[in-house]
Nucleic acid binder design. Structure first.
Length: 259
DNA sequence: CATAATGTTTAAGA
DNA sequence: GTCTTAAACATTAT
């Protein structure tokens, strides 16, 4: 589930290839990879991986001369760094072959997600229209944006053009831990709840990254490991409910989460 | 077999 | 212009 914490882990995976030269590129699914072999030859092959950075759910691989590989992971994408002797077989869309006999693979079961190359990453990111990264945003900006919104709070958190990086699963988690129902209007939140949500947003993201975005490592008192209809709420006697909010499935505890 | 699934984009309606 | 829904994308898991 590639949201901000997952992509942050992919960033760490890509950083294993930092300062290695990219000797070759294998496009394994040309339907999926937007860039052509020629573009990889021009922008990537023969260059070192100089820097890896993330904004929201996007990951950027800088390969010098203002060349950037832009990755989005859709719902099922991931990165894997492995020796050339341990090739993954299924769902590989792209492989970067490094000069140390290791490979960086982009793997995706489904076709939601993208791989592109740009010669102007500034212009490219502007076009993506991403709001401030959820891990970077300050409390004042958060408060201001929230008060200006007419949307429900869950919708607000997931809107990538306002704040980037938060998706369906982690928005549920933040709202659960803040005791806020997902369908309440953002503008109706009390100052106290806004403050609480801001703090929980940061804490949930940080903890999730510390736990390598691995659900099995998350605290049992979190919603995440209990995210199913009718499941027991880990913090009260209530049962977890499922509702549709902004086209997605939200899980919450009606008794813990009240305005 | 039918259904829902972590995301984004687009279109249409309120 | 804002916000919400639904559909589409392709494939897997239940």
């Amino acid at each position: 589930m590639p949201e901000l914490p997952d992509v942050e882990i992919f960033k760490q995976e890509a950083e294993k290839a930092l300062h290695k030269r990219i000797d070759n590129v294998e496009i394994k699914d040309s339907d999926f990879v937007q860039a052509t072999q020629q573009e990889f030859e021009k922008h990537v092959i023969g260059n070192e991986l100089q820097e890896v950075w993330r904004k929201g759910k996007y990951l950027f691989l800088e390969t010098g001369n203002q060349s950037t590989v832009v990755l989005h992971f859709g719902m099922t994408g991931l990165l894997k760094y492995a020796p050339e002797t341990e090739e993954p077989t299924r769902y590989v869309k792209l492989t970067l072959e490094l000069d140390n006999k290791n490979h960086l693979h982009y793997i995706c079961k489904r076709k939601l997600g993208s791989i592109e190359i740009t010669g102007d990453s500034g212009k490219y990111t502007d076009q993506l229209d991403l709001g401030t990264d959820a891990f970077q945003i300050g409390e004042d900006e958060f408060k201001e944006k929230l008060k200006a919104s007419q949307a429900t709070i869950k919708s607000f958190l997931m809107d990538q053009s306002t704040i980037s990086g938060i998706g369906n699963v982690y928005s549920d988690e933040m709202l659960y831990q803040s005791g806020i129902p997902p369908t309440i209007k953002s503008s109706k939140l009390s100052g106290k709840k806004i403050r609480r949500l801001y703090k929980k947003m940061k804490r949930v993201l940080k903890m999730a990254i510390d736990k390598e975005a691995d659900v099995s490592q998350m605290p049992k008192t979190w919603l995440l490991p209990n995210r199913e209809e009718g499941g027991d709420c880990p913090r009260c006697d209530g049962k977890i409910k499922k509702v549709r909010v902004s086209g997605r499935t939200a899980y919450y505890c009606p008794s813990c989460q009240q305005k």
